[in-house]
Every structure is written in structure tokens, then in C-alpha cells.
Nucleic acid binder design. Structure first.
Length: 427
DNA sequence: CTGAATGAAAA
DNA sequence: TTTTCATTCAG
């Protein structure tokens, strides 16, 4: 809400007047439901914040923001009202999910209130900026969406989001919701799964939000990670393909300077072919839009080690033959290589593995590549402190804000790898 | 800057 | 039909 021309805000909403109830503006077009029936009454109209301190880089300073739509208004008010406290959720991406669900659950009657407010806001906007016209910048050039990016997303616990939304719809807010969710989290098994095996550490969980800190005492907490495949990305309705997660088709793009494609042991596709005659890879699919078949619950790798007893086995390797294939790759890994590592434990070192073949960039990056050899063999490694989720190559493109700026942006497109090497093994 | 949601408006 | 951008702020 930029403070435009000084006086353009002639519609100053009586800021410091005694809270005598009086609705602002003209009578609403839609009669609001009885106050006691409103689940989420609009937050108090606060004076516009003293201009956002954050230095917006792409905004011309005189930028006129779009008028907010009904949902945006609802979300804004919802956040302001702290209906979901920071105790329950702080991540705004997740909050958007929750509020989105809540919006759907909202009685039509109450939604109309917000549509009315949006309409009023639009009128107000037009009064204020008669010359305004929405001018979306066409970022990409005409023709092929050559380099649309597919971004790794943090897994969200949708069950939990839905539960929160359910409680909200039932009228639980604030501290009541806190208590209810605290109880829920005590028994809830977080279902967060990336399509490949994700190193779900306690810290990663916390950071990825929407997941309570896993209770290590809860023995079944981690066993369901791969018994249920969740994290199905909800994609906005579209007649064709989801807009944000297109099927990979670009053969090569991205910044591969630091991750050589060829003649580089650490990133040589040809060196690790998934020969289906050797071992069909039946445990996963690489299409980010396709669900995967959960891998067999246990593989030979998980030979009763403590680490594995607390985590599901890595699903990538499903057969000894396949494992052998991997061992022939740049990074020798033994069948006993742990695939999971709880964050506090130091990664095991393998003679002549990571250190010996890693590129300088890789060496500066998280050491979990030694923990997840399958990824490191793909030349994949991402995350700052080894606690980020490893990416599904099919979904990964770039994660700039998770890469150290001093290292340069990691930007790899795995489409070629996926299409040529993994495609045959998709289910 | 990005992700999340929904929806209005433009390309 | 598809894309952008309104809000929000931790990451």
C-alpha cells in the first residue's frame, strides 16, 4: 500500500477514533451475516503501514499495486487477525494453503462479504487511480517457454493443513486452535515425502514448516514416509498441463558450467546408464506430475542399522544389480552405505568417494552428498547446510535462495537426464 | 526474490 | 487459454 500522492489517500480511514462500531464506506451491497455467525470477521482496518521498509527492487517506486481481490483481502485479514497463531504455523506458503482451504470451507454467505469488499476496493482503487491499468509484464519472449523454471518446493503436510482448516471451519481460532493442533501433532504422523527419498531431518522438518518436530520416540513416525506417497502437488485447473510444472522437455538448459555434463566424472550421464536389462528401475517415476509407487519397505541396504531402524530405507536402490551399477559410477559406494543420516551424526566418509571426485563447487556444498550417493552421482547436491531436501531431479531446476550466493547460482536442468535415461523406467 | 493460495485482468 | 500480480514474510 504505497503512500502515493500525499493527498490521494483522502479516504483516510478514521484511524484514531474511539472504536465505536461503524462500518466504513457506503452500505455494503451484500448484507453481512449476523455477527455471531461470521467465522472470520475482517480485521480492524489499521492505518497503512509506513511504507514497506523492504527495498523492492523491481518496483518503480511510483508503482501502483493492483486492487486486491476477495481472497487476497480475506487472506490479508486472516493473517492480521492471527487466527492461526505462529505457534501453529509461521510459514506463509503453508499459511496460504491453509487459508485457501479455509476459503473453500467458508460459507458462501461469508465469502460474499469479501467479494463485496473486493468490489469496494476496486471502486476505491479506480477513484484513486483513474488512469490505472493493469499491465502485466510479459516476462518471456514470444514462442517457446524455453526456460521456464520448475522450482523445488518444500513438502507440505497437507493432512495437517486440512486439519487446521477443518478446525478453523469449526470455529477454532487462536489459542483454542493452538491447543487443538498441539494435541493433533502429538499423534499425527507427518506425511511428507518427496518422490525420491528425502533426508528428513528434524531441522529440515522444522524449516519446511507445516510439520511438527518429529517425535523420535514415536516409532511409527518414520515408517509411513514411503508407505504413503503424498506431496501431490495441487495444480491449478488447466485444460492442458499445469502451468508451473510442465513436463520437462528442454534438452539442455541452465547453468552447467560448474556441473559439466560430459567428461566429468562427477556429472557424466553416460557413465551410469540404467540398463533395464540389468535392473529395471521400478521403484519410482520421474515425472513430477505422476505419483510413484512406493518402494519395497526394506531393502538389503537397511541391514538393521540403527539409523535405518529410525528411517525408511532409501528407495532408489531396489536391487543388488542396480546397486552394482551405481557402484561402477564415479563414486564408489558400498552396499552398506547408509542412505539416511540423522542430522547430528557426521556423515560417514568413504575412501575415494566424494572428496576425490567432487568439483570445487560440490566440495563447498553440503556434505550430505556423501550420505546420498545416488544424488551425488547425478551431480546433484543442493541446500545450504545439508539439511535441505534433496531434490527430485524431475522437479529440480533451481533453488537460488538455497544456494550460497558466494558460490554462484546452481541451476541445472535435468530434463535430458530424465528423458533419455530415466524415461524408460517410468511406470 | 520465492512460494503458497484465489481471482481479476490482460496478453 | 495462459500469464501476471495483487498479500504476506520466513527462508
Amino acid at each position: 500500500m504505497p503512500v502515493e500522492p500525499t493527498d490521494s489517500s483522502g479516504v483516510s480511514f478514521t484511524t484514531n477514533i474511539t472504536p465505536v462500531t461503524f462500518t466504513d464506506g457506503p452500505p455494503p451491497l451484500v448484507d453481512p451475516p449476523p455477527t455471531e455467525m461470521i467465522l472470520f470477521p475482517p480485521a480492524e482496518e489499521a492505518p497503512p503501514p509506513p511504507r514497506r521498509p523492504t527495498h523492492s527492487k523491481k518496483k518503480p517506486e511510483n508503482h501502483i499495486p493492483r486492487p486486491p481481490n476477495a481472497f487476497i483481502l480475506f487472506r490479508s485479514s486472516f493473517i492480521k487477525s492471527q487466527h492461526v497463531s505462529t505457534e501453529v504455523e509461521t510459514n506463509h506458503s503453508t499459511l496460504s494453503k491453509i487459508i485457501g482451504l479455509t476459503w473453500q470451507n467458508l460459507p458462501e454467505k461469508e465469502r460474499q462479504v469479501w467479494h463485496a469488499k473486493a468490489k469496494a476496493a476496486l471502486e476505491e482503487h479506480k477513484r484513486k487511480f483513474p488512469q490505472y491499468a493493469f499491465r502485466p509484464t510479459q516476462s518471456k519472449k514470444g514462442g517457446t517457454p524455453e526456460k521456464r523454471k520448475v522450482r523445488e518446493v518444500e513438502p507440505k503436510d497437507m493432512k495437517r493443513c486440512a486439519k487446521i482448516a477443518e478446525y478453523l471451519a469449526a470455529g477454532l481460532k487462536g489459542h483454542e486452535l493452538d491447543a487443538a493442533m498441539a494435541e493433533f501433532d502429538k499423534h499425527h504422523v507427518p506425511e511428507v515425502v518427496t518422490r525420491f527419498e528425502a533426508p528428513i531431518t528434524a531441522r529440515a522438518y522444522r524449516r519446511s514448516s507445516s510439520a511438527p518436530i518429529p517425535d523420535t520416540e514415536n516409532s511409527k513416525a518414520n515408517q509411513s514416509f514411503f508407505s504413503t506417497v503424498t506431496n501431490i502437488k495441487k495444480v491449478r485447473a488447466s485444460s492442458t498441463r499445469p502451468t508451473r510444472y510442465p513436463t520437462p522437455e528442454v534438452v539442455t538448459s541452465g547453468n552447467l558450467e560448474r556441473m559439466p555434463l560430459k567428461h566429468e566424472p562427477s556429472f557424466d550421464f553416460s557413465s551410469f546408464s540404467f540398463d533395464r536389462t540389468v535392473s529395471p528401475m521400478t521403484t519410482f517415476s520421474c515425472d513430477p506430475l505422476i505419483d510413484i509407487v512406493p518402494p519395497s519397505p526394506v531393502d538389503s541396504v537397511a541391514s538393521g542399522q540403527d539409523i535405518h531402524s529410525m528411517h525408511s530405507p532409501a528407495p532408489i536402490v531396489d536391487s543388488p544389480a542396480f546397486l552394482d551399477e551405481w557402484t561402477q559410477c564415479a563414486s564408489p559406494i558400498t552396499p552398506n552405505t547408509p542412505h539416511f543420516l540423522e542430522s547430528p551424526s557426521p556423515p560417514p566418509s568413504f575412501p575415494g568417494s566424494f572428496e576425490s571426485f567432487a568439483t570445487p563447487l560440490e566440495k563447498t556444498l553440503p556434505d550430505f552428498s556423501t550420505t546420498f550417493p545416488t544424488y551425488q552421482q547425478c551431480g546433484l547436491e543442493m541446500g545450504l547446510h545439508g539439511e535441505s531436501y534433496l531434490s527430485n531431479p524431475a522437479e529440480y531446476a533451481t533453488y537460488p535462495h538455497h544456494s550460497d550466493p558466494s558460490l554462484g547460482q546452481i541451476d541445472i536442468d535435468f530434463s535430458a537426464f530424465i528423458n533419455t535415461t530415466l524415461q524408460p523406467y517410468q511406470l
